[in-house]
Design a binder for these strands. Sequence first.
DNA 1: CCTTCGAAGTTGTCATTGACAACATAAAAG
DNA 2: CTTTTATGTTGTCAATGACAACTTCGAAGG
Lengths: 203, 203
Amino acid sequence: MGVHVTYHHGNLRKELLDRAAIVIADQGIDALSLRALARDLGVSHAAPSRHFKDRATLLAALATEGHQRLTDALNTAADAVGDDPVARYNALGCEVIRFALRNPAYFSAIHHPEVQRHSARALEEARVAYGETVRAAAAAAQAAGWHPDEDLETLVIFSSATALGAANMLIDDHADAHLTEAELNDLAAKIIRRVIPASTKEL
Amino acid sequence: MGVHVTYHHGNLRKELLDRAAIVIADQGIDALSLRALARDLGVSHAAPSRHFKDRATLLAALATEGHQRLTDALNTAADAVGDDPVARYNALGCEVIRFALRNPAYFSAIHHPEVQRHSARALEEARVAYGETVRAAAAAAQAAGWHPDEDLETLVIFSSATALGAANMLIDDHADAHLTEAELNDLAAKIIRRVIPASTKEL
DNA sequence: CCTTCGAAGTTGTCATTGACAACATAAAAG
DNA sequence: CTTTTATGTTGTCAATGACAACTTCGAAGG
């Protein structure tokens, strides 16, 4: 009688994260509710607590995954432009903005204040890995002649700040929806070129 | 007997905003609760609703005030460095970061997504006034020789993005509390100098 | 095998919150 | 004076996060 197709969902953790990403992407991070998530997936209101102690923990998991994906995306983008360290760092900047626009949920989870303080092991590691990817690329660009007289720390903060700020601003503009994806990419490229040229030759 | 010192609080709107700024500054914008605010000020839980229809409306009011104060601060900072348009725009950048660090509540209200969409008359006007202040200063700097070949729009976005991103990053670092105010100011100045030099002579 | 034990889901409950409605009072306008 | 109107108050509701106690499934070891 009771056709218990699945008492155990089997895969809830992953589906919670995926669904959360969708909800955040189109309703914003504040609209994320654990109970609503549970309803969407057809489980009871307390089921999520088996996987995430609370809202902040779920967001931290999203941020961790976001950091990993972002780091991967950056490496891929850099490799796609070849060996020139300046071109590679330029590509990193562009990719940060593109990633933010394509993955608003990961991006906002990464930078959400509630998550910033939440320090879990996995999250810390993902953060560090990301930071080192950026730092190493910046150091290589500097060694290739990019602002040789400025200290590396300042350059990293400067370029990260520009990419971060640009991503935020473009996400807002995107919401107002009067820019195509191509236009956004062009604009991003122009902005990053103010930070670092697209190749060593232009230095 | 009933010593009704004040049934009418007299000044609730302003005190709500002030108290909200304090709460946000040290607990973050998510921790802001209308009921807690009411308790703090010794009024009933529904009193705030006479002045702000809901949480978003209160935040919008904070953002409006924030925009006005920021605009004033920018004008003051620019005037303090004299007539050189390049120096003035550099001062604007530094002041944005300083303002963000000194007024985290206004700053986060201004950029909170829940507020971005909330479009009230007063807020729109404050936003426009701020935008024009920045845009005019950028145009003047360009006329004085700053990146004469780039389009103004890109330059405005680039410089705003850097200031915005730097403010966000430094606020986070500030929370980790291993930077003095003087160090933060120095770092901010160094970052902004990557955007625009401190005077026309250095162009 | 079969049994027990732990991981994953469920129901039930509580305090907190935002939102709203109905009521009360102070202060100003007539 | 009296009437209105802004401002506070009490009462209530539905939604939520958090927690506790109970259930069920599946796997690991005897």
